[in-house]
């Protein structure tokens, strides 16, 4: 007897539409998420990412389209969907008056796990998420990173096969951010499907098997990180000069794509390989324009973002916070 392993989609969406009053928030979304993979929905603030997650997690009804989540029809069997998924929203969904352990116990009780099994899972999650020292503390005394870890731990009490993470690292410091990424990788290694939204390109690049860029309610491009990078113009060298005359001389001698007279910089198309680098430097030597600084820029998702949405994305969480 032979058994065939079907990789059925964890999420399949066709023609999803959602409007709030006059405003069209999601405008004909089609997407498929394969089981056991990480899917990143990338987009600027207000693109409709959270609305998308809220619909898939049964919190918000769609206006149109057919949606299946974890093998259940979202419209006719929302409880089937709820039993299979876990949601970690943008704002820590924790009970601030309870302790860490009581929060996890609450989840275990709501999953009706029973005393023994519930206690075992709670203990395991406290251990895994490094919450042992604060297990008896009220949540209100925890740091932001600890709250976010507890939040995710609470999502995992029910052992969901599909997890929605809505901007899981927004507002976290770099260390907590990397800890969160590590946890996501471990979950995927265990076979969990992760659907995450983010406004950080490096996050999608780091974690996701497939990325869809959402802008103004439409998916403008979808593919693997490499596919997306291949679809945009190649890399370049960024040359900076100290002297406007040198900048002019270099600009005349080289095939430049962009020139900034204020910053005294030039962009020259390049794959970043040594031969083309030497050629550029040779030319500069010849015309006597010596750059003060040189940077090699290989295409990243920022370029993808710029190319497909016409707006730069937020790449640095720190700059977002201080704004």
């Amino acid at each position: 007897m032979t058994t065939t392993v079907h990789t059925r989609p964890a999420v399949s969406v066709a023609g999803l539409r959602k409007t709030f009053g006059e405003k069209v928030v999601l405008d004909g979304i089609d997407l498929t998420v394969t089981e056991g993979t990480v899917f990143a929905l990338l987009g600027p603030n207000g693109a409709g990412k959270t609305t998308m997650v809220r619909i898939l997690a049964t919190l918000l009804p769609a206006d149109g389209g057919s949606i299946r989540v974890a093998g259940h029809d979202l419209h006719s069997d929302p409880d089937g969907v709820r039993a299979a998924i876990g949601l970690t929203g943008q704002f820590a969904a924790v009970d601030r008056l309870l302790t860490v352990r009581e929060n996890l116990r609450l989840m275990a009780d709501l999953h009706r796990l029973g005393r023994t099994e519930g206690g075992r899972r709670v203990a395991r999650l406290i251990e895994r998420f490094d919450l042992g020292e604060s297990a008896g503390k009220p949540v209100s005394l925890l740091s932001g990173g600890q709250q976010r870890r507890l939040d995710l731990a609470m999502t995992l009490v029910g052992d969901p096969r599909l997890i929605f993470l809505d901007e899981p690292t927004t507002g976290l410091d770099p260390r907590s951010r990397h800890a969160m990424w590590q946890i996501v990788r471990e979950l995927v290694a265990e076979g969990v499907t992760v659907f995450l939204t983010t406004q950080y390109l490096d996050e999608a690049d780091q974690l996701a098997d497939r990325i869809a860029v959402l802008d103004h309610g439409r998916i403008v491009v979808e593919g693997t990180a490499d596919e997306l990078k291949r679809r945009i113009p190649g890399g370049h060298l960024l040359l900076r000069f100290t002297d406007p005359a040198a900048l002019r001389a270099a600009a005349d001698a080289l095939n430049t794509t962009h020139r900034d007279d204020d910053a005294l910089t030039l962009q020259v198309p390049s794959d970043g390989d040594v031969a083309s680098l030497q050629a550029v430097l040779g030319t500069l030597e010849l015309v006597g324009a010596k750059p003060d600084h040189l940077a090699i820029h290989t295409p990243d998702l920022d370029d993808v973002f710029f190319a497909f949405t016409g707006a730069p994305a937020t790449t640095n969480p720190a700059s977002e916070e201080t704004r």
Binding site: R54, A57, T58, L59, D79, G80, R82, A83, I85, L87, G89, Q90, F91, A92, A93, V94, D95, R96, L110, H111, D151, M154, T155, G158
Partner: peptide, 13 residues
């Protein structure tokens, strides 16, 4: 007003 209500509502309870 806190996220916890969304957590409850997305669970099969």
């Amino acid at each position: 007003t806190e996220g916890i209500v969304d957590r409850f509502r997305s669970m099969a309870i």
